[in-house]
């Protein structure tokens, strides 16, 4: 019920906009501390789970996450049963069956997150343009997670003299400042059960971390392997330098 309500609210809030990509006037998002930054950074599983909750209860009303399958949620620390439970909350269209009909069934772990709109045109009919898919958003925007966090927390009143359409909103960090998406978050909007502060800033941080994972699920493996590769190469370099020195000793 709550989700339907939020969906309706979000759909009402977000309507057509012209070029969000309009150049100029962009403000560099503040640089935040992220646990996944740095050569040995890892994702915070609790933050990822909270971020998933924010995505499911708010963002998913308009934004798809089509490259993520429920099975991928194992990375967030969920076990097989929990993943099955989450998947089964979704209705997936499957088919055609033996009669040639499409049919609905509960989701299973190998399904991908269903998109809020069946196609681009349906999304555009409601929002003017299709709200971007979020699977790669932190890679597709300069400043990545900082940008996502900044957009979600950057809403303010339009400065004097700036006229906005009813469907437009003022965001400090949006390039050009005019954004079609209404401020999607407010304090206490999403229920956290682990005592984490239920503030816009915290929601934005959590969902930005979750979306970073969605864009780069391989990051922890990558950095772990990377450290081993660099360690190996560094030792190899010293060995080779010694070999080279020894061989060249009689030339110099």
């Amino acid at each position: 019920m709550k989700r339907t309500l939020l969906t309706a609210l979000a759909v009402l809030a977000v309507v057509p906009f012209q070029s969000a990509q309009a150049a100029g006037d962009s403000v560099t998002p503040p640089h935040k501390y992220w646990g996944f930054h740095g050569y040995d950074g890892t994702y915070d599983k609790a933050a990822l789970q909270r971020g998933l909750k924010v995505y499911r209860e708010v963002c998913s009303a308009c934004h798809s996450l089509k490259r993520i399958a429920f099975r991928n949620l194992a990375d967030l620390g969920y076990n097989e049963d929990q993943i099955k439970a989450i998947a089964s909350e979704y209705t997936i269209q499957d088919g055609p069956d033996e009669e040639g009909e499409m049919y609905d069934r509960p989701g299973i772990p190998s399904d991908y997150f269903p998109s809020p709109f069946p196609n681009k045109q349906a999304a555009a009919a409601v929002h003017g343009v299709m709200p971007p898919d979020l699977s790669l958003i932190t890679k597709a925007r300069k400043y990545g997670a900082d940008y996502v966090h900044a957009i979600l927390t950057g809403y303010e009143a339009a400065p004097e003299g700036k006229k906005l359409q009813p469907s437009q909103h003022w965001n400090k960090y949006m390039p050009g400042h005019v954004i079609a998406m209404a401020a999607p978050l407010s304090d206490e909007l999403i229920e956290y059960e682990d005592g984490t502060p239920m503030t816009v800033d915290q929601y934005a941080r959590d969902v930005a971390e979750f979306l970073t994972w969605a864009a780069e699920p391989e990051m922890e493996d990558r950095k772990r392997i990377g450290l081993n590769v660099l360690l190996f190469l560094t030792i190899f370099a010293f060995v080779m330098y010694g070999v080279k020195r020894k061989i060249w000793a009689d030339v110099h």
């Binding site: 050569y39 990558r222 990377g226």
Partner: peptide, 18 residues
């Protein structure tokens, strides 16, 4: 050349992985 290549690969690997 092998020594030089390894040094080059260190820079290359740093970018690939980080």
């Amino acid at each position: 050349d092998t020594f030089g290549l390894i040094v080059f690969l260190i820079a290359y690997a740093a970018v690939i992985f980080f």
